[in-house]
Amino acid sequence: MELLMYSTKTEGSGERLLRVMGLLLPEYKFEICRSINELSKRLRQPVFNPTVAILLASSREELQDILSIRDLLGDAKIILIIPDANPDTVAQGHTLKPRFLTYGESDFVDVAAVLKRMFSNFGADKSVKKH
């Protein structure tokens, strides 16, 4: 299960997200992209299809950046963190087809809980396929 995280921020919500993930999901390793170019480049690489992509848009501009490369995200299950709860921002967020959408001011415990469930479903799928 490949996990990709996009966060341009190393402080504030970006730092909090990483800290909570490290604390609640220490067994999983995330590949982190710090710029939209880095993310775009990574997603264009052959045979790279992240199972889950956690995308933190710390501003509406960043959300636009993410939307501009939505075709590259393929089948990845997207967990989207949007900068505010403005209806326009929320509506734009939903065009990315996120499996879970939350806000930058969240404590991200909800993100960890959703991720944990995705991991466990993924494990169950694998074991079913093996049989």
């Binding site: 939903h94 087809k97 499996r99 959703v114 944990k116 469930r117 479903n121």
Partner: peptide, 13 residues
């Protein structure tokens, strides 16, 4: 909007 609810991934709580 087209809003997705991933019933399998959302914790029951």
């Amino acid at each position: 909007p087209f809003v997705t609810v991933d019933c399998a991934s959302l914790p029951p709580a």
